[in-house]
Amino acid sequence: MSDTARTETKKRSAEAEVLAEFWHYFSENRGAVIGLFVFVALVLIAILAPIVAPHSPTQQYRDALLQPPVWADGGTATFLLGTDAVGRDILSRLIYGARFSLFIGVVVVTLSLTIGISLGLIAGYVGGWLDTLIMRVMDVILAFPSLLLALVLVAILGPGLMNAMIAIALILQPHFVRLTRAAVMSEKNRDYVTAARVAGAGPLRLMFKTILPNCMAPLIVQATLSFSNAILDAAALGFLGMGAQPPTPEWGTMLAESREFILRAPWVVTFPGLAILVTVLAINLMGDGLRDALDPKLKRS
């Protein structure tokens, strides 16, 4: 075995060890494991939506308007969770809705994470007036109630799912900036960074390859929290008519469409909200587990 191959194996086994240790702490938290299972199930449902869903999410069955779920009086097995006011199958709409919610979460977290980390690295590493400017702008964003700022941004950009995601990403990224900056400030004068600098590493390499990997733990936890916040905020915008537009089967939009039927047909309101709650809860449970597993202060070794 050549030298490079040997170090490669050694590196890989070290990585496996870290993963094993992580899983050990993560799996100690029963809630986190349950959350992970629910989340994986949701991802599978979202991917397999065309196969799992019994009906098309937009097909209107005109002879089955506001049909109650199968277990209630007048419900049929054709529509397991009943139908909405224009005769669409609620279960199928919920299944397709999972796609939107997870998509929203992924896009928003990716956007706010990349922008937030970059700004945070620059603020923390470069410092000076650039740091002051970035952090004051973040203070201003945080001075507004998040949902209010998102609403106003959507009013500027125009209602719609894409614009809602951009608005939510913007209001969530200050948290990433602050976390990254704080972590960078505490790391940048450590010996290993100085060593890398003396060895000739450029500022970009120092920022992204040397310092950033050592700041990841709080960022991962924050990313999970932001994922669930993004889903909640997007649903709230949809509920206020400023997010995804009908007939998109987005959960918040479904709730908005069904508001006038709450007393006549409670099921059209109950299930979309339940779907939001279960998804957000599963992600938050995972977040708690991640925090316990990644936070060295809480590790009981």
Binding site: G31, L232, R259, I276, L277, D288
Partner: peptide, 15 residues
Amino acid sequence: ALVGYSMPIFWWGLL
């Protein structure tokens, strides 16, 4: 508390 923290309050109000 975790359920409350994850609650979409617009739906909770309707319920």
